[in-house]
Computed example of a mutant assay.
Amino acid sequence: MAKYINPYTDFGFKKLFGEEANKDLLIDFLNQLLPAHHQIADLNFRNVESLADLSAERKAIFDIHCKAVSGERFIVEMQKAKVKYFKDRSLFYVTFPIRDQAQTGEWNFKLEPIYFVAILDFEYDEAEERRKFRRDVALKDQDGDLFFDKLHFKFLQMPLFRLQEHELKTRFDKWCYFLKNLESFDHIPNILNEPIFQKAFGTAELASLSAEQRDRYEQSLIQYRDLKSALETAIEEKAVEIAKNAILEGADNKFIAKITGLTVEQIEKLSVELKKQN
């Protein structure tokens, strides 16, 4: 039996990062991702679940209104997701906080900065991007110069975070290690034995949940596992289709393994199957 919640479930994600009582955890985590001029002094959650045009899947997204240490206001859209067309959806989701800033009457169209932060427990299916655990994306021109400094995307592909306890150097490393391994911990590792993580572990402990909360978590865990299984099946099927086409084109097995993520043994088996069919 696990001792701590799975942070990728809707319940676990909200328990750690979506409650007023734990917003110090969220502030500490986000401040490791945000630039120096947008370090958070305070934040408020917008009740996005009350929006009339909200789809069910957007309930796992937090619309966070932040106040920087400098006094400037900005917005963070934070989510975890296991969906197809992930980048398309990310761009669509970020239109919500842009649109919501529109003012009636006279308005000069000045916008508050927006950061879109996604914590992903999967890799997107573009092979060249599987090598990047963290991607910081902004609007740039043809020379790579920043064109617009008010829209930033930050994607964390958690399966690609592979640092071990003795390799952690920054607070950001520690948060990623915490999220990646939380469900498998049975005690607080020495390197995370400091106040902010002690609170995070206490929040995530299953024994601290009420019976009603435990039931909600169990339902959330079932949904998470079902969705993860469906997504992994879809990705696997796509990889197999790509591999079959590459085999028919005469590509080298090691090259096919590299571009699909399949093992050489799986590709050899596919080759045998294709020969039998032909």
Rank of each mutant, 00 (worst) to 15 (best):
A2W: 13
A2M: 13
Y8E: 00
Y8V: 01
D10S: 15
G12E: 01
E19W: 00
E19I: 00
A21Q: 15
F29H: 06
A36G: 02
H37G: 12
Q39D: 15
Q39Y: 12
I40W: 09
A41P: 02
A41W: 05
D42S: 11
V48M: 06
A56T: 00
R58M: 11
F62E: 15
I64F: 05
H65L: 01
A68H: 05
V69K: 13
R73Q: 11
I75M: 00
F86D: 04
F92L: 15
T95R: 06
Q103P: 07
Q103G: 13
T104W: 12
E106A: 08
N108P: 02
L111I: 03
V117H: 12
A118P: 03
Y124I: 09
E126H: 10
R130I: 11
K132E: 04
D136Y: 12
D145Y: 13
F148H: 08
K150Y: 01
H152L: 12
L156Q: 15
Q157N: 05
M158E: 09
K169R: 06
C176D: 11
C176T: 06
K180A: 07
N181Y: 10
N181T: 00
E183A: 14
S184G: 07
P189S: 09
I196L: 05
G202M: 04
A207C: 01
S210A: 06
E212K: 10
E218W: 01
E218R: 06
D226F: 05
D226K: 10
K228L: 13
E232F: 11
E236A: 11
E237Q: 03
E241G: 07
K244A: 13
A251E: 14
N253L: 02
F255T: 06
K258M: 00
L262D: 03
V264A: 09
E265L: 14
L270C: 07
L274A: 08
N278V: 00
